[in-house]
Design a protein around this nucleic acid. Structure first.
Length: 589
RNA sequence: GGGGGCGUAGCUCAGCUUGGUUAGAGCACUGGACUGUCACUCCAGAGGCCGCGGGUUCGAGCCCCGUCGCUCCCGCCA
């Protein structure tokens, strides 16, 4: 299959059944061992590594000399015979370890200077620093680990295409030069040469385009789409990233979620993991109540419990003040946490404080007795009798706005300290019924939780027409182990409702709405079907399935955390004449 | 925008706490020896703007200030 003018095939698939065959192999010199009258070269291609032996019995002295002299990472062509290794010289750690190639001829097709960073590493040897790996990406990408990641990435892409195409979804492309969006993340802007002072933007997602496809009647669309956001980076965030973008017409939320589940199952199966075909559902409200977070990690319990009623009987200033102010007292029970030292609990508290809480109220039961600053206040309150021996309770008193993030952090930290999270556990959950809007605490302005095109639950709009902050959205997230894999919504397909949404979000007057989103509103007025969709972070999925610690390990040419490309040196200054053509003046240089 | 970590040979790292001869090690590299290795082994050698700039000091890899780069986190990411 891999036979070409130069070679008979790849090296990695050679096995004992190939013994006796004459082969010509091309690849990189991974490592070599020169024993004098016998030279070994480990020859590497994307499929694997094979040992090539050069011995005086079968190779000319000149061939032996060439093998001894060639440097690592050079590209060579070797011709020889596949030979079985004797039992004592087999290498069980190599896929090709039962055989070797006795080379009779060799050519150096691409001699290599000494590599700036090592490709072959011995056991326990560290990789080069990431900065160097990015600067010499062509070498780093030779590492079998990174090659395996990109091979898996390819297979996930093909699985996605097959899964969606089989279900009638059309892979349609949308522009990369598009219109700046006032909402959301900062846009990457592209100046127009022919229209002085005007700019395109790179898409943050193909959101509006895919809705236009629905309006046009392409009722099942998908795209493996590149998206761009000019925001600060993280290990799991790149300025350009890839989404599996899906939209369909005449669908309900359940239609989309069933499709999403099926896609995730097939992707995980492609990577070798069998997972349940239906994921548990949880409302946003339940997730916040039980986990303090809209993407809960369900690999462990430590659920948040409301103790407000119990604390009504407790004459303790902090809890009383919080309850009187309309807040609640909620907490988590940490089994075995009673033995933690004061310092250890302080460290958990520091994280909760960091998340905005004033502090953690502590109570523990040790040797049957309640203990801690709260103990004498809660003595005799029945609700605390249930606290099991050896357990620690951590409470946050205050508004949910404060206690949710604080308890979320405390819960995660306690789980980590208890070492109850299994890395090989996979707990999927679909979170539904997100709120439509959230209020900016500073300005009181409404902002879309998902995006401005999301449809509200009709029942909520009918019940509370004047309280949009009480509306729930037909929006959903797919979550795995506390990480968001993707999310989506049913969209607004009525132009009047959509315009009303813009009003609520404070997006200008009608005239300005027409200027910014007129093409969408016009489309919706032209006969739009009900539609909705979902988008998954493809890089993140590839990262999870390959076990890579960073997005940079599943993207061939990633940017640094300063959004710089170290290999090709982008971004870069450009000649002044180029700027002039674009009607741009820079205040640098 | 803010906070933490790192920056010494091609690579990975010691040395910095407590400033003081000629800055070390392993791997890689170069030369030599070696016919069953697979991180081959052995002998020898070469290799340094201690990120950059400034300051303190008789003297700075080491202390101070600034700056650049990489990285992790907060803000940000509809």
């Amino acid at each position: 299959m891999y036979s070409t003018a130069y070679r008979t095939g790849r090296v990695g698939a050679l096995r004992a059944t190939d013994v006796g065959t004459q082969v010509t192999l091309g690849g990189w010199v991974h490592r070599s061992r020169n024993l004098g009258g016998l030279v070994f070269i480990d020859l590497r291609d994307i499929d694997g590594i094979v040992q090539v032996a050069f011995g005086t019995d079968w190779a000319a002295a000149s061939v032996l000399a060439m093998a001894a002299a060639v440097g690592v990472e050079s590209v060579v062509l070797v011709e020889g015979t596949v030979v079985a290794r004797s039992d004592s010289t087999k290498n069980p750690e190599m896929g090709t370890g039962d055989i070797e190639v006795h080379a009779t001829a060799m050519r150096v097709l691409g001699p290599a200077v000494t590599p700036a960073i090592p490709v072959a590493r011995g056991k326990g040897e560290k990789m080069a620093a990431e900065e160097l790996r990015l600067r010499h990406r062509h070498l780093d990408l030779r590492r079998p680990e990174l090659q395996a990641n990109l091979v898996l990435r390819h297979r996930l892409m093909q699985t996605t295409r097959a899964y969606l195409s089989e279900r009638g979804y059309l892979e349609l492309e949308t522009p990369v030069l598009t219109k700046p969006t006032p909402e959301g993340a900062r846009d990457y802007l592209v100046p127009s040469r022919v229209h002085p002072g005007e700019f395109y933007a790179l898409p943050q997602s193909p959101q509006i385009y895919k809705q236009l496809f629905m309006v046009s009647g392409f009722d099942r669309y998908f795209q493996i789409a590149r998206c761009f956001r000019d925001e600060d980076l993280r290990a799991d965030r790149q300025p350009e990233f890839t989404q599996i973008d899906i939209e369909a017409s005449f669908v309900s939320q359940d239609d989309i979620l069933a499709l999403a589940e099926g896609l995730i199952v097939s992707l995980w199966r492609e990577a070798g993991f069998d997972i349940p075909s239906v994921f548990p559902r949880m409302t946003y409200a339940a997730a916040m109540e039980r986990y303090g977070c809209d993407r809960p990690d369900l690999r462990y319990g430590l659920e948040i419990v409301d103790y407000t009623d119990a604390f009504r009987e407790v004459a303790f200033n902090i809890s009383q003040a919080a309850i009187d102010a309309g807040g609640r007292v909620r907490g988590i029970i940490v089994p075995g946490g009673a033995v933690w030292s004061r310092k250890q609990v302080d460290e958990v508290e520091a994280l909760a404080k960091d998340a905005g809480a004033g502090g953690l109220l502590r109570l523990r039961r040790l040797d049957g007795k309640l203990d801690g600053p709260l103990a004498k206040f809660v003595d005799g309150v029945g609700a605390f009798d249930a606290l099991p021996d050896g357990a620690l309770m951590l409470f946050v008193a205050g508004s949910d706005r404060v206690s949710n993030p604080a308890l979320d952090r405390a819960r995660q930290e306690c789980a980590r300290r208890l070492a109850i999270v299994r890395d090989d556990d996979r707990q999927f959950v679909i979170v539904t019924d997100f709120p439509m809007f959230e209020r900016d605490p500073a300005t009181g302005a409404l902002a879309a939780v998902h995006h401005p095109f999301t449809a509200a639950l009709a029942a909520d709009v009918a019940a509370h027409p004047d309280h949009p902050e009480r509306w729930r959205a037909q929006a959903y997230d797919v979550v795995l182990n506390g990480t968001e894999l993707g999310g989506g919504s049913i969209r607004t397909h009525d132009p009047v409702t959509q315009s009303h949404m813009f009003d609520l979000l404070g997006i200008g007057d009608r005239e300005e709405q027409e200027r910014r989103f007129g093409f969408l509103l016009e489309a919706l007025r032209s006969g739009a079907p009900p539609h909705g969709g979902v988008a998954f972070g493809f890089d993140r999925i590839a990262m999870l399935l390959s076990g890579a610690p960073s997005l940079r390990d599943v993207i061939a040419f990633p940017k640094t955390t300063a959004a710089r490309a170290l290999f090709e040196q982008a971004p870069t200054r450009v000649p002044a004449a180029d700027l002039k053509d674009l009607h741009i003046r820079s205040d640098e240089s």
